[in-house]
Amino acid sequence: MQTDFSTVIFCEEHVVKNELKEFHSLQTKYIAEGKFYFGLCSTCDFVNDCNLKSQDSIILNCEHYQ
């Protein structure tokens, strides 16, 4: 049913899956070659020499964020 020539803005068959998804849209900041930080770490003053940061998780809460 899809048309190649126009943007479809009305569709009776349109379905949105009824569940929330986490999109990893949290902004990143380039710190050093090959290293990207997400969430609070991306703007934290301690990011370059933090004892605690985790490369494998998006930090949304941190008592030491500054």
């Binding site: 990893h24 949304l60 809460n61």
Partner: peptide, 15 residues
């Protein structure tokens, strides 16, 4: 590409 690879393995609070 490197960023995308990193995004894939990341776990978030929502999950």
């Amino acid at each position: 590409m490197e960023v995308k690879a990193q995004e894939k393995k990341k776990t978030g609070m929502y999950e």
